[in-house]
Design a binder for these strands. Structure first.
Length: 510
RNA sequence: UCUGGCAUCGUCUAACGGCAGGACAAGGGACUUUGAAUCCCUGAAUCAUGGUUCGAAUCCAUGUGCCAGAACCA
């Protein structure tokens, strides 16, 4: 049992950016002076849910890549272009989680919604260049017109509207004179392009919805494909890192930057493989479902793979950062074994956490030769490897709790814990020998009758005999009942080992 | 049937034409007042077939497999 509030023996930021293919690209650009003295990345989540450990990888990557040059920066940008999905509570949680991970965007927190006016101006520019048009087809007609993987699309009947007409219609769209679905603004690219993203993609759709930041100021909202490259360009982003599923969007990203023109530096999109973890759901949609259907107690439920959930569960930010560093960055789809994450956490926790003793499923032990009312106080180091951290005091009394799993009626050969006739060490206290077990009429184990060796104070063996088992224990007198809600919930409904309900109490000494 | 991307130990990842290395996991051992931690050891890989080369995981060709893509989501 551990207490993770102990101070850290490690520097909170001793991990440096490891080489990877993105670092290589950045280093090349730095060397050739492609963007001059500018190295700018950004972490751009949509505020429609809590961040999870997959986002942690992206956060670490963007911030550490920016650190490759002394002048590099990483912005936090909330990609809030879809008012119906987004909410301010997520804006808040995202900031808290990034900060908890140990990254600082300083004053550079931006919102795509702050760019709505500029993005709109870019749309007008495209219309004036004859590169965008208002399409009045229905959503179904647009979908059908797009064709499919094997069939080219066909031009919209509205594709050749005049610049003037498009400008008028776009103005009316913005003014709220049209219903949702009545019209969209599309880029005029190529309906026969092999890349479906290039078949006249949508730039704007009409949403008569209130936005969490802009309220009712707008009723048309830019699509991700349009807003994202522009937001990057506005912020001077040089390296726009995103996950593999946007690979097919890159030609469109570049098309917008080039068609609108005049941006310096020119942002470049680079894709990497998203994090997949064994036994772990990292799909925002599914996590959303767990929350919505109340299978969990909110986004920060300790069972959730969200950063907030992991924080509540006792994860350390440096463990997440070290993990991100350890798994590397590549373009191949991967499925990381969760044991790698757990290893990293154990490593950090082992160093951080002061020790205490706990009993999850108590079994009473009575020391027959230990007088009622007597007490022996022992000092046990808070951490076996860091004696300078000090000691805690534990008191031995006649009646104790030990872990139920630490006793077996019929012990196998290599069983070093309690069994009739077996001797074990109570950590930090003494040696005890199990004399007998007491059962009730139904045959349930009630308590253990043991004897202690007064010569073994502190758990030493004056005669040098070997005792292989060392057990956690608590005095029934001053054990503190500290039922952990998570544990309670995990085990109260399903009990694979058939234990009784009361056995799930947890006791921790002070 | 289309377009794009990716293939190295069980899992991640390194080697950038010159000894296939590391970590996790697994197995074995030592030590231990948490069956923890720590330490040592072992097994374990270049998708396939050709080609270029003194030399190929790396370059070329062909094939195979996997992932992504047809929201007015991001």
């Amino acid at each position: 049992m551990t207490d993770s509030t102990a101070e850290t023996p490690r520097s909170p930021r001793d991990d440096s950016a490891a080489p990877n293919f993105i670092a290589d690209i950045i280093d090349d650009d730095l060397r050739t002076g492609k963007n001059g003295q500018v190295l700018q990345t950004r972490f751009p989540p949509e505020p429609n849910g809590f961040l999870h450990v997959g986002h942690a990888k992206a956060i670490c990557l963007n911030f550490t890549m920016a650190e490759r040059a002394g002048f590099g920066l990483c912005n936090l940008r909330l990609d809030d272009t879809n008012p119906v999905a987004e909410d301010d509570v997520f804006v808040q949680s995202i900031q808290a989680d990034v900060r908890w991970l140990g990254f600082d965007w300083k004053e550079r927190i931006y919102f795509a919604s702050d760019y709505f006016e500029r993005i709109y101006e870019c749309a007008v520019t495209l219309v004036k260049k004859g590169l965008a048009y208002v399409d009045s087809q229905s959503p179904e007609e647009i979908r059908e017109g797009r064709g499919n993987y094997y069939q080219v699309g066909k031009n919209s009947p509205f594709r050749e509207r005049s610049v003037e007409e498009n400008l008028t219609l776009l103005t009316r769209m913005r003014a709220g004179e049209m219903k949702e679905g009545e019209a969209v603004l599309r880029a005029k690219i190529d309906m026969a392009h092999q890349n479906m993203n290039m078949r006249d993609p949508l730039l704007y759709r009409i949403r008569h919805a209130s936005h969490h930041r802009t309220g009712d100021a707008w009723c048309i909202y830019p699509m991700y494909d349009f807003a994202h490259p522009l937001s990057d360009a506005f912020e001077g982003v040089t390296h726009s890192l995103c996950t593999l599923e946007f690979e097919n969007h890159r030609p469109l990203y570049d098309w917008f930057i080039e068609s609108i023109g005049g941006f310096q530096p020119v942002p470049r999109q680079i894709e990497f493989a998203r994090l997949n973890l064994t036994y772990t759901i990292l799909s925002k949609r599914k996590l959303q479902q767990l929350v919505a259907e109340k299978h969990v107690n909110g986004w920060d439920d300790p069972r959730m793979p969200t950063i907030a959930g992991m924080r509540r569960r006792g994860y350390l930010p440096e463990s997440l950062r070290a993990f991100a560093e350890r798994i590397g960055v590549a373009k191949r789809d991967s499925l990381i074994d969760v044991s790698l994450l757990e290893y990293q956490l154990r490593e950090d926790l082992n160093a951080h956490a002061n020790r205490t003793m706990a009993i999850l499923r108590p079994l009473k032990v009575v020391l027959e030769n230990f007088d009622e009312g007597r007490e022996e106080v022992f000092e046990v180091p808070l951490h076996p490897e860091y004696p300078e951290r000090g000691v805690r005091r534990v008191t031995l009394t006649r009646e104790l709790w030990v872990e139920r799993d630490d006793y077996m009626q019929e012990a196998p050969k290599k069983w070093f814990r309690l069994a009739p006739g077996k001797e074990v060490r109570l950590r930090g206290a003494c040696l005890i020998t199990c004399q007998s077990a007491v059962h009730d009429e139904a045959g349930n184990l009630i308590e253990l009758r043991c004897t202690w060796d007064p010569e073994s104070l502190g758990g030493s063996t004056p005669d040098g005999r070997k005792v292989k088992g060392t057990l956690h224990w608590l005095s029934t007198r001053d054990a503190v009942k500290a039922t952990v809600r998570l544990y309670d919930r995990l085990f109260s409904e399903e009990d694979p080992e058939g234990h009784e309900g009361r056995s799930f109490l947890e006791f921790v000494n002070p």
